[in-house]
Deep mutational scan, measured.
Amino acid sequence: MASQGTKRSYEQMETDGERQNATEIRASVGKMIGGIGRFYIQMCTELKLSDYEGRLIQNSLTIERMVLSAFDERRNKYLEEHPSAGKDPKKTGGPIYRRVNGKWMRELILYDKEEIRRIWRQANNGDDATAGLTHMMIWHSNLNDATYQRTRALVRTGMDPRMCSLMQGSTLPRRSGAAGAAVKGVGTMVMELVRMIKRGINDRNFWRGENGRKTRIAYERMCNILKGKFQTAAQKAMMDQVRESRNPGNAEFEDLTFLARSALILRGSVAHKSCLPACVYGPAVASGYDFEREGYSLVGIDPFRLLQNSQVYSLIRPNENPAHKSQLVWMACHSAAFEDLRVLSFIKGTKVLPRGKLSTRGVQIASNENMETMESSTLELRSRYWAIRTRSGGNTNQQRASAGQISIQPTFSVQRNLPFDRTTIMAAFNGNTEGRTSDMRTEIIRMMESARPEDVSFQGRGVFELSDEKAASPIVPSFDMSNEGSYFFGDNAEEYDN
């Protein structure tokens, strides 16, 4: 783990906690998980779902989305002020799938948001429990990260689609708070800032007046979040320049895209947490497990152990491969979309394939898809080993990566060399080191050039047997250095459309 220093740990961010010791953190995270579980059980009762239907990941996603929508204050306010045809701002819903006479049927349900809020609060001892809501947002974000390569979004903001390893959390809503900021990748933060800068260039009043003052505060806050992700002084200094700019424009845009590229080699610290679907927490609570009393951590053995003992089902389209669908969801559960496939294969105990080789589309089923041909199958979400999630980018030494994705962002704290394609990355730096950030740029390029592919990161860190909950005997895996390590390699994943 990167030293926490003055930073709060993510469990504290996750639970809005002030400084807590490890036991208190485990208890408050457990409380959050228990609340999600209780809410899910109650919703299944309301909807009269069978046990099997309640364990269907598509039903879980609909129920999670309903509660997130019920608590989305800004959108609710907007919907009330701008009524649109056929949208009731006070209601929320989605597809629920039921097994009827041996076939899967889709039923569109509609609930009062007020009623959903009441059920959620009741499951969370009367609190709004925003930490639990954020947790579900991060699960949705991790699922998107594993399912889609955001080529269009990258290109629109002047970045290269091969930089997708920097895009963790790119679909997280803005209201996801400190826990959300911690899991956002460098590219995601750059993209958010670039969008602001572009608006400022096109709209003279963007930075002016009372609204402009708020915009400015948001801009500086985002700059500080991004600065905190960088691990070298030169990158941090460049972020200070971007933040202090009187009138952010093209120079800042250039600096930010430069920094994003540099992060492929001088990786930023991005938190990883295993956020599971509500249909995993519900049955665990129903079986009598007391998360608050037992304590829970999002970055240790607990999620692995929970998945070892969970039964989750998914709808499967006619030509999809259930094992591939399982891999997709497994990666999402562990926030591992940008991790090295060699490491993932070792931990999972079966070969993890790149996205383009998977015969599976996303987990969600569109409303126009034919239910007649839908089957369902068990998702295999178990693992051979477990490993500690990392909050750091690993040290800054790398190795060759593949054509589709030119770097990785480690999820697990496991000893290995970190793949990246130096030639491709360095070719993108057209040696432009003039301007006010020239000395920093020169320094950053120097550090990137001296990074050695064969150097090892996370020295001495290994994986653990599932029986080793105290992480007492690390097993340090050895990897084939020459092997392909990137998930979005030469990829044809669908595009994420909101």
Rank of each mutant, 00 (worst) to 15 (best):
I406H: 02
T23R: 12
P474W: 09
Y78I: 04
R261H: 08
Q398K: 14
S367T: 14
T23M: 12
D302H: 14
T92F: 04
E484T: 14
E73W: 06
S176Q: 03
E114G: 12
K348P: 00
V190F: 02
I33R: 00
E81L: 12
E192L: 11
L418E: 02
I225A: 03
D480A: 13
E380P: 02
L259A: 04
D480P: 11
N21P: 01
L358S: 06
R74W: 12
E484L: 09
M32Y: 07
S170R: 07
N492F: 03
A153I: 04
G394P: 04
G268P: 15
L143M: 13
K214Q: 10
V29M: 11
D421I: 15
S345M: 05
E375V: 11
N21I: 12
D455A: 12
I301W: 05
T147Y: 08
T147V: 15
I109Q: 04
G102E: 12
A260W: 02
G93M: 07
E494T: 07
E220A: 11
V183Y: 02
Q149P: 04
N205P: 01
V183G: 07
V67A: 12
K87N: 10
G177P: 00
S450I: 13
R98D: 02
E294Y: 13
I33E: 01
S262N: 12
F291P: 14
T6Q: 06
A70S: 15
I347H: 00
M448Q: 03
R243Y: 02
T378E: 02
E434Y: 08
M371G: 04
P410M: 03
G485P: 05
Q409T: 09
G435T: 10
I33G: 04
D455K: 06
E73Q: 11
V312Y: 01
C275H: 02
R221S: 15
R446S: 13
P248Y: 01
I41K: 00
S176C: 15
A237D: 05
S269A: 12
V456I: 13
H272N: 12
L298E: 02
G5K: 04
T62M: 06
S482T: 13
L154W: 13
K236G: 05
L166P: 07
L358D: 05
E254K: 12
K113Y: 03
Q20Y: 10
G249L: 04
